[in-house]
Nucleic acid binder design. Structure first.
Lengths: 208, 208
DNA sequence: GTCTATACTGTGATAGAC
DNA sequence: GTCTATCACAGTATAGAC
């Protein structure tokens, strides 16, 4: 495991707030460090000691404040799904998917080392508790309203195909590091995605 | 799929029957066990002792035969990309993508606990050596010929979008366990994918 | 009350003696 | 080929210093 930040306690730099003995600040520091570490190295690749060292506190505080590594993970990786992304039925579909594209694929989630929390979780999908969290967030939070919008017999399936496309793009960019998608801009990618979304929306009209 | 390493071994002397303690057989058993374990629990969640126990041998053999856990992983997870998937320029595009759909998303890779090796690797993408392997296999092996087929300015990007879609579908099915895609059949899914592929191929004709 | 030191128990990879 | 020792490090718990 990563043994960066050794030593007992690097004295706080002059000017930085000497945050000692502040419960809320320590909790927040632990969460920030956890996001970064979990994002970079996944659940198993991260130790509570590393996180604590990054936050400048002792590892025991993880258990004091969060109970377990697992609960720390769950809390660190919880991010708000942008409210109303798919909620407003009056917005055109491409606009909503464009927002999703921006949010999931192109946004810079610097708190998670540049990756969307969902992609971060993907890396730890070997753990059952992570899978469950993932499924809920993707299928319910992100795609639920979508499925209701695209009605028709295959609505749920088509909504998940849309999710697969966006998620896959994020995976290609962040986890795989593919060249074209990695360098492409949001502006250049959007028309292609729009076209795909249109094809998906249109599919409800013909019998299959 | 079975990579029974065919080393040029001399045949045992006539009369000496025992096929137990066969180097090649032990190696193969270790590889099989490794595929299953790595598939189920990921790189970090798997111990060499588990693998060795599954194979019925001692853990030290892993190091004797493969040098390290990391090299065992690399070898276990290497699977042949179906030759000629995208190679034949005369096959219609939808046929080729349908093959990919079947191979990546719907095939039952029972040797890997039901998941395509690429998805298995995704779970371990926190490790740099895994990422490098991933990128090569996806972008070069699977999508390279594709990009050459779809010519036009955005060819590489569109090829990667196709990859993203298929990969994302696999992710939704295997790693996330999404309900609709999880239960959908290949036959029901294919027309939707065909439509998306058509939209992608068609995009080269209009200016963006 | 907030935090640190340290110990406990399990398991990881690996080396070297049989 | 196998067994066992080793040694680092994981998650977690507790006791007590500030």
């Amino acid at each position: 495991m990563d043994t960066t930040a050794p030593g007992p306690r690097p004295a706080p730099a002059p000017g930085s707030a000497p945050r000692r003995r502040d419960k809320a600040a320590t909790r927040a520091a632990l969460l920030d460090a956890a996001r970064l570490r979990f994002g970079r190295h996944g659940y198993d690749g991260t130790g509570v000691r590393d996180i604590a060292a990054d936050a400048g506190v002792d590892a025991a505080l993880v258990f004091r404040y969060f109970g377990s590594k697992q609960r720390l993970y769950a809390e660190a990786v919880r991010a708000e799904v942008p409210a109303g992304l798919a909620a407003d039925r009056r917005r055109p579909l491409e606009e909503v998917t464009a927002d999703l594209l921006h949010d999931v694929v192109f946004a810079d989630w610097s708190a998670y080392d540049g990756e969307h929390p969902l992609l971060v979780m993907l890396r730890s999908s070997g753990r059952d508790h992570v899978r469950a969290q993932l499924r809920t967030r993707i299928c319910d939070d992100y795609l639920g309203e979508f499925a209701r919008r695209l009605d028709g017999p295959d609505a749920a399936l088509r909504a998940e195909l849309l999710g697969a496309l966006l998620l896959g793009m994020g995976v290609m960019r962040s986890l795989v590091g593919s060249p074209a998608l990695g360098e492409a801009s949001y502006e250049r990618t959007r028309p292609l995605v729009d076209r795909l979304v249109a094809a998906l929306a249109q599919a409800e009209e013909d019998g299959r």
